[in-house]
Design a protein around this nucleic acid. Structure first.
Lengths: 248, 248
DNA sequence: CGGAGACGTTAGCGTTTCGTAAGATTCGTA
DNA sequence: TACGAATCTTACGAAACGCTAACGTCTCCG
């Protein structure tokens, strides 16, 4: 199927991040139905979620909760969403996704002008919103990558999450985006055995519906690049009947 | 992970899928045209498909057919899709994909509230639905297997569920996937006696219909690997006339 | 517009693993 | 001890599994 658009420099899936440190999302939405569904959906994706129903409450909760991302309804009682966005932006870089009623293009533009990272028009599917949240957070993670990523080192193999670079006893190894993501995930959970499907969930896009053999091939390509003898891997071990693991 | 569960003489849809265990999908759709197209597509992808046209029939068939996933039309005669979803969820974790007519967002939201794993709006492309089915099933299967993974230790024997590795006083022991599953199960219920049939139910695929001597052979292979003196086992004890137990 | 690189897919091939059956051995009991 | 039943042991063919080397599509960039 369609492999899903992957931007260069993206780190790893939300599920992945959730395993490392739970990311926090603040929802600002006055319609209880919508708020509740979105909340549940994001929870299921592994985020820690907080919901408020008004502008002032949003600002309070923002200070207290320190979310990694804000989902913000444009139409709010008390304080307009625009204003909330502006104020959030005044004090932090935290990404904001705007919810706008009906595809009113003017609102869209204004929202962006305010510094929103993305916006979703009502009616929207929670699924789409979740995808946006994931994507925006990825980009945000990239931006302050030096804070959130780590450098993994095993023997002579060095995997630098911030620089997205890998080094070998023979020097720098050039990996593609997906190769890096895969290696970073495996190395970040060294010793743990994953099935191909689990790896697809962790490294590939949410909607990806491809075959598990895709993983096989990527592991092979990785081995070709980082293993001295790819047919007798030192790091990327096959676990027969299960999948793969990274041997520390 | 699935031994002899392939039924002879059965026509396998796509040769690609021939290697996979056949998964079951229940379609609940009252429009015959739609139902037929979806059915054909999913069959081609190697799924075993059952179709029903009403809510009550869906619940009956759900109990009988035990699908791995349900594709559920929101608009149904007799019993609303919402209610069907709710009842399915009340008794199992089986993933549900909702089909909603036209992007009626309220329905979407309500569908999610009910615990649907995904939904597709009509008109949809059968290919897309098939992709969603695949993706949802993948995640569902993973969730099941990723659950309880702990490290078990008895004397000098160490069984690590995450790494799927076993260590001995003599060092690392190399087990096959099935050997590990068997050991992990027995050790995880140390002291408890299981018949061969119980072990087959627990460790093998539920459709597996082989004879119990398979277990005997696997226990033997395990003993050969983890016991100092396989003929006088320290851990894997035979309980005459009953089966086996793991001695803590 | 054309070439390169990244990615997913596919098919063929070699290897590992598994289930089975059949004969040997051990156990419980008379 | 002797006998039947349960368990153990062994070997082998088939199936499952992973590896590999293509190929096709898409995107990016000159």
């Amino acid at each position: 199927m369609c492999p899903g658009s992957r931007r260069m420099g993206e780190v790893i899936g939300a599920d992945t991040m959730a395993a490392m440190a739970e990311q926090k999302v603040l929802i600002v939405e006055d319609e209880p139905m919508v708020a509740e569904v979105v909340e549940r959906y994001l929870r299921r994706d592994g985020y820690q979620v907080q919901t408020v129903a008004s502008g002032p409450a949003a600002l309070d909760e923002f200070s207290r909760f320190r979310p990694d991302l804000v989902v913000l309804d444009l139409m709010l009682p008390g304080l307009d969403g625009r204003e909330v966005c502006r104020r959030i932006r005044a004090r932090s870089q935290t990404p904001v996704i705007m919810l706008t009623a009906r595809s009113d293009e003017v609102d869209k533009l204004v929202g962006l002008e305010l510094g929103a990272d993305d916006y979703v028009t009502k009616p929207f599917s929670p699924r789409e919103l979740a995808a946006r949240v994931k994507a925006v957070l990825r980009r945000a993670v990239d931006r302050r990558s030096e804070l959130d990523t780590e450098v993994l080192q095993f023997d002579r193999l060095r995997v630098d999450g911030a620089a997205r670079s890998v080094e070998d006893e023979r020097g720098r190894v050039q990996l593609t985006a997906r190769e890096f993501d895969l290696l970073y995930y495996l190395a970040g959970h060294a010793g743990h055995v994953f099935t191909r499907n689990q790896l697809m969930d962790a490294v590939w896009d949410y909607e990806f519906a491809g075959d598990a053999s895709t993983v096989t091939v990527h592991v092979r390509r990785l081995r070709a690049k980082i293993e001295a003898d790819p047919s007798r891997p030192r790091y990327l071990k096959t676990v027969w009947g299960m999948g793969y693991k990274f041997e520390p």
